[in-house]
Design a protein around this nucleic acid. Structure first.
Ligand SMILES: [Zn+2]
Ligand SMILES: [Zn+2]
Ligand SMILES: [Zn+2]
Ligand SMILES: [Zn+2]
Lengths: 152, 152
DNA sequence: TGAATGCGTGTTATAGTATAACGTAACATA
DNA sequence: TATGTTACGTTATACTATAACACGCATTCA
């Protein structure tokens, strides 16, 4: 799904973006939160909360579930990570600057996730909601399947 | 979301539909599976696995988690119920005859769920997938918000 | 300065969701 | 009746997430 690349750059830019965003919004991107974000960004794939927990443990001996869930909540709330409901897993947001609804392509082959947030989908969702006189507040759209590379 | 109605008729018709479908497909809609389906259909809202478990317990003393999860798996697999990933809950399929992808409107006010499975959405999802050369195999689309009645 | 407040984190415990693994009973088919 | 298959019972455990309370530290304001 992601052609071979220097992923350290992805991590680095995700972290520095997050710092800028938090700076601007007056949020505290503490060490803990930054480390959790870094672990979420360890790959372009879904990351489980308890895997983050284990890896935190390496550095700071005593991490307990609330530690990581609280950080994830913070990061979610401010659009830095997303939760994938169909997997109970988390993924870093690939364009956290723009406030937007996010849809996901989840490859079962290479276990990578790509955000696909386009107007066409949003329009279709809104017009369907309208038809039903429904006022949407939060949307989960997760498309599982095989990416170009993995379907060959 | 659902105007006042005689819900017993919903339950009854869901069960008799299920019987027909299983008959045709040569599937065994056992007593247990039928009771689980009935409990899922207790409302038009999401139902939790452990609530089903509790209610099963009333009749058959010793129900354990695998009992209900196995039945739910069977019902899911054959399109008689759907799982709502954003809620970890289950809902009866409102038109199990047609093989189809299902999208859901979930009202946070009255806790009712409506299937909205239209071509426009499917087309938008497929064309987005195409753009990314992605081959979808399973789709989760859950729209949370307020229904017409509850948004007044 | 010192109390008051808010926030982030630590810590313990528990709630909630789901499956593995193994045994037995019921059913189908020959 | 023998045989293989499916459904279910049962025990244990894994996985996911939150409640509740304590502590430290920074900010504010009396
Ligand atoms: Zn990368
Ligand atoms: Zn792939
Ligand atoms: Zn009804
Ligand atoms: Zn409603």
């Amino acid at each position: 799904m992601f052609e071979s690349h220097f992923h350290n750059e992805c991590i680095h830019s995700a972290l520095s973006n997050a710092e800028k965003i938090c700076m601007v919004k007056g949020l505290r991107l503490t060490d803990l939160r930054k480390r959790v974000l870094e672990l979420v960004w360890a790959s372009h794939g879904p990351v489980k909360a308890y895997d983050i927990l284990d890896k935190l443990g390496d550095k700071s001996a005593s991490a307990k579930p609330p530690t990581v869930y609280r950080s994830l909540d913070f990061l979610k709330e401010h659009g830095l990570v997303h939760k994938l409901n169909s997997l109970n897993a988390y993924v870093g947001c690939s364009h956290p600057h723009e406030r937007h609804v996010c849809y996901f392509l989840i490859c079962k082959g290479c276990h990578q996730v790509k955000e696909c947030c386009n107007r066409t989908l949003t329009k279709a969702i809104n017009s369907t909601s309208d038809e039903h006189h429904f006022r949407p507040s939060s949307i989960t759209l997760e498309i599982e399947g095989l990416c170009e590379h993995c379907s060959k």
